[in-house]
Design a protein around this nucleic acid. Structure first.
Length: 342
DNA sequence: CCGCGACTGAATCATAATAG
DNA sequence: CTATTATGATTCAGTCGCGG
């Protein structure tokens, strides 16, 4: 089967979880009971590959009872049995219709008319190997304190496998932002023959409600289907005003000033060495590239423009020849292109 | 206009540093 | 070790502003 590229590369939904639904007939659900010192919990649930359904009630020893329910599904898995695609509005609505049918066939009647959304995963895929984006992605994640990690996704993998599993992750209770190699996550290697990188934003509970309320919308499932475009707006807004802003700030506050001051320090030490007849050290650009985060060779152009008097053009040529492979601004722009339309 | 100093940047030279 | 490259320093021609 050929994959539909449009469905892969558009912004859309992946996993969604829902609560506040009614189970009109749950007689076919599995049942489990758990007792602790404080409560007895009675759960009705469904064990299904594509749909996770759970409705639980806790009876506390002091007489209180609490209810918890969640329905988690992936529109794309329901429709296409894989989640390489990102769901648009039609996909979401069709998957809900199909989900209700699937449950009905299993003897479970679900009423979603008052359902509310607990969390959504919004994705954007890129037709590029994650290794090409390592520096640009590192920049996007670096200012989220302590939240950058490279996951090897389990033990005993060969190097190639670990490498493919490179994952950038920022995760808090109500929000998770990550980038990873989608291809290595897909089980059927024949299905997806490209190396796809995915950027994913998951909004959970309060974050979802807050983001929706900025657009004067509530968390009802029907609100989402009726205002589906908000998904893309929220995603773009988060990337632009939080992720990208932090990245630019890191460049301006950290990367550029470091390069400039180290450049000047190197030149200064050379000048004083010359005065007392000692050897001068050559290779500023090499020194900078080896000891500091260069990120992009264009930053060196700025320094040369500012500080080099005599040999500006020659120095730029040298930089271009030696270091223009450090072109991460280009890659950052490629990643951000969808929020800054031409 | 002319001539002078200040300034630029390209060409050239000299040497540190690296490649082979 | 030699050849090549990188880069500080010097030289030099062109340009600008300005007083005369």
């Amino acid at each position: 089967m050929e994959l539909d590229l449009n469905k892969i590369f558009r912004i859309g939904l992946d996993k969604i979880s829902i609560y506040n639904f009614k189970i009109k007939d749950g007689s076919q659900l599995l049942k489990s009971e758990k007792t602790t010192d404080y409560y007895t919990e009675e759960s009705f649930y469904l064990d299904d590959e594509m749909i996770s359904l759970n409705s639980s009630t806790r009876f506390y020893s002091d007489g209180r009872t609490t209810h918890f329910q969640v329905l988690i599904f992936n529109p794309n898995k329901i429709l296409h049995s894989h989640n390489i695609y990102n769901a648009d509005k039609t996909d979401l609505m069709n998957s809900i219709i199909k989900l209700i049918e699937i449950l009905r066939k299993k003897g479970i009647e679900l009423d979603l008319s008052d359902a509310r959304v607990r969390s959504v995963e919004i994705n954007k895929n890129y037709d590029i190997h994650i290794k090409e984006l390592i520096e640009a992605l590192t920049l996007l994640f670096i200012s989220f304190d302590n939240s950058v990690k490279i996951s090897n996704g389990g033990k005993n993998k060969n190097f190639k496998k670990i490498y493919q599993d490179n994952t950038f992750l920022y995760s808090k209770k109500t929000i998770s932002f990550q980038a990873y190699c989608k291809t290595s996550q897909v089980n059927d290697q024949k299905l997806l023959d490209k190396m796809i990188t995915r950027i994913e934003l998951e909004l959970i509970g309060a974050s979802y409600r807050n983001r929706m309320s900025k657009h004067k919308l509530d968390d009802k499932l029907s609100t989402l289907t009726e205002n589906y475009g908000v998904i893309e707006l929220i995603f773009k807004d988060y990337i632009k005003n939080i992720v990208y802003k932090r990245a630019v700030n890191y460049i301006e506050e950290n990367i550029k000033p470091t390069l400039e001051s180290e450049y000047l320090a190197y030149k200064k030490s050379n000048a004083s060495a010359a005065k007392i007849g000692k050897k001068q050290r050559k290779g500023v650009y090499r020194h900078l590239a080896e000891n500091y985060w260069l990120f992009d060779y264009l930053f060196l152009y700025e320094i040369v423009d500012k500080h080099e008097k005599k040999n500006k053009n020659r120095e730029k040529k040298t930089i271009e020849k030696r270091l223009s492979n450090h072109n991460n601004l280009e890659k950052l722009n490629y990643l951000m292109d969808f929020i800054f339309p031409q």
